[in-house]
């Protein structure tokens, strides 16, 4: 009885099931979040109240608890939650849960019941998501940062190379950005960077990845895209940026970009080779007078 009081005040969910998955114990925390009273659910099969839990994974988990006496750990990352409970932290539909399932044993050591411990980790998940965003995104423009780009480029490179799929890269740079900064000030410069980034992003498709690669240089990974199609997108990007008026307080100016485009080919061993080809093309675009798209030289 004393223990029961403890179980009812702790800030975690506690459920005990028998081998037929009937509820034998349901603490107050569970009542609070499910709206189901202890008297209502005790003696009933858990899955009758929560049909959505009846997955292959859950079945497997319970089997391994009863068969081996194993513990099952369900991370919020992979499963999000076991019990669909609502909560009010923005960005999450339901309470994120970290769940542990384990055996309760008879005197002869065989598991006769299972416990389920449910922890609300929504706040942690939100914090983690924020940290994660901060670690992969560029603070000023909101597009990905260079480190993330390099990881992804390597992954995409390896994958596309393995399956012989097309993969292209666009590297672009704002023309005469230094003089924009010198003429209108850094604040305006920052505004232009943000504007160019968002215009470029609007031109891209859902699965494309864009990152700020250097000061005023950006890089886009275009999965499943041939060189020809990448050039079409690059050209559209160039026109969209060129036609956009950058208005900030009482200052207004237009900028242009130079773009280099490359495509994954047989001879490239690493993602750096793919990037290098785009960089060479970008260099040619600058050299040939800027505000243009240049395709890599074929080898």
């Amino acid at each position: 009885m004393i223990y029961r009081q403890v179980f009812d005040v702790i800030n975690i969910g506690l459920v005990v099931l028998d081998k037929e998955l009937r509820v034998c114990y349901w603490n107050r925390w569970m009542t609070k979040h499910s709206g189901i009273e202890c008297e209502e659910i005790i003696g009933s099969p858990l899955l009758e109240f929560f049909p959505e839990i009846d997955t292959k994974h859950f079945e497997r988990s319970m089997k391994s608890v009863f068969k081996f006496g194993s513990f099952v750990f369900m991370s919020q990352k992979l499963h999000k939650y076991l019990f669909k409970f609502s909560q009010n932290i923005s960005g999450f539909d339901h309470m994120r849960q970290s769940v542990t399932i384990g055996p309760i044993r008879e005197k002869d050591n065989t598991p006769s019941h299972a416990f389920i411990i449910v922890q609300d980790v929504t706040e942690m998940a939100a914090y983690e998501r924020k940290l994660h965003d901060m670690s992969i995104k560029d603070g000023l423009t909101g597009v990905y940062n260079r480190r993330y780009l390099e990881t992804r480029l390597k992954e995409e490179f390896d994958r596309h190379k393995r399956y012989c799929h097309a993969l292209s890269v666009i590297l672009f740079d704002i023309d005469h950005f230094k003089s924009v900064n010198d003429t209108y000030g850094h604040q305006f410069g920052d505004f232009v960077l943000k504007n160019v980034a968002s215009t470029a992003l609007e031109t891209l498709r859902r699965n494309d990845i864009m990152a700020r690669y250097g000061g005023e240089e950006f890089c886009c990974i275009l999965p499943e895209t041939t060189l020809n199609n990448a050039v079409i997108i690059a050209e559209r990007m160039r026109m969209n940026i060129e036609s956009k008026e950058n208005k900030f307080h009482d200052t207004s100016a237009k900028v242009t970009v130079s773009l280099g485009v490359s495509e994954l080919c047989e001879v490239m061993d690493t993602h750096e080779a793919l990037l290098k080809k785009a960089d060479e093309a970008l260099y040619t675009a600058k050299h040939d007078g800027r505000n243009r798209v240049v395709t890599m030289t074929q080898t």
Partner: peptide, 26 residues
Amino acid sequence: MGFEAESSDELDNEMLIEIGNILIGA
């Protein structure tokens, strides 16, 4: 299982963890 992938590497790890948990537990 359905996935909402942010980074596939991380989910792969979570998946491996589950598989490992079963094998080791047994």
